[in-house]
């Protein structure tokens, strides 16, 4: 019990350190999400390319990145690129790693979003004289992205938690800070519990928000 008493004595200090590290967790999450949103859309569109070669490469990208652990991808980017002369510091390496990985998932989300827009929409677009490209940009994508929002939100919540893996390349996020605290205090149970609570405090409100978004958008489609 003395361990718990000691823990409560240093709790404010620990919390402050973890909260400061939470900024990095959020940076990795938002940075990774941004890369994934843009690259994922590009890949989803390239998969629909009329050039077979381009479409196959985009599909291969999705398959490869979805079948390899994100930890392996982080190691290749951080340790592998470092070995051949491209040293990247942990934070950008994590953002690039999660971004490249997430792009594969988001490409699939966009794809099913695009496919669930009724065909008549594209035909109506070309009926009023839009080119294929215009119809995609002005008619299909706005609807597809709206459909994709809830799964994108779910992906974002998942990414917030997965960013803990960046501890393996020493990115100074929550898990890394917690591990450092434990090395100084030996209070592993207490500090990892505190860390888990912090993640829950961040992810639960977000996932409730996504659930509300899901209910709203499913209502909109039915109406």
């Amino acid at each position: 019990m003395t361990a718990w008493r000691h823990f409560f004595a240093i709790l404010p200090e620990c919390l402050l350190i973890l909260l400061r590290a939470a900024v990095t967790t959020i940076e990795i999450t938002l940075g990774g999400l941004l890369v994934a949103l843009v690259l994922g859309l590009a890949i989803a569109l390239l998969r629909r390319s009329s050039s077979r070669g381009v479409a196959v490469i985009a599909a291969a990208y999705v398959e490869v990145f979805r079948c390899v652990p994100v930890l392996t991808q982080l190691f290749v980017i951080y340790f592998g690129l470092g070995q051949i002369g491209f040293r990247i510091s942990p934070l950008p390496a994590a953002i690039v790693g999660f971004g490249l990985n997430g792009a594969a998932y988001l490409a699939e989300i966009y794809r099913s979003g695009i496919e669930s827009v009724p065909r008549g929409q594209a035909e109506a677009g070309s009926a009023i004289g839009m080119t294929k490209r215009q119809a995609m940009i002005w008619v299909i994508l706005p609807q597809a992205i709206r459909i994709s929002l809830p799964p994108i939100g779910n992906y974002g919540v998942g990414l917030l938690k997965d960013s803990s893996i960046a501890v393996a390349i020493a990115a100074p996020e929550i898990t890394f800070a917690a591990t450092n605290l434990i090395n100084q205090t030996y209070l592993s149970t207490q500090i990892y519990l505190l860390m888990a609570l912090l993640y829950i405090a961040m992810s639960l409100p977000l996932s409730h928000l996504v659930r509300r978004l899901e209910r709203r958008s499913s209502r909109g489609v039915r109406a």
């Binding site: 938690k161 997965d162 803990s164 893996i165 501890v167 898990t175 917690a178 591990t179 434990i182 592993s188 149970t189 990892y192 519990l193 860390m195 888990a196 609570l197 993640y199 829950i200 992810s203 639960l204 996932s207």
Partner: peptide, 15 residues
């Protein structure tokens, strides 16, 4: 579902 799997592994193994 709110916490990372890694947190659970650390709690079980180190905690």
């Amino acid at each position: 579902r709110g916490a990372p799997a890694l947190a659970l592994l650390f709690l079980i193994y180190f905690g």
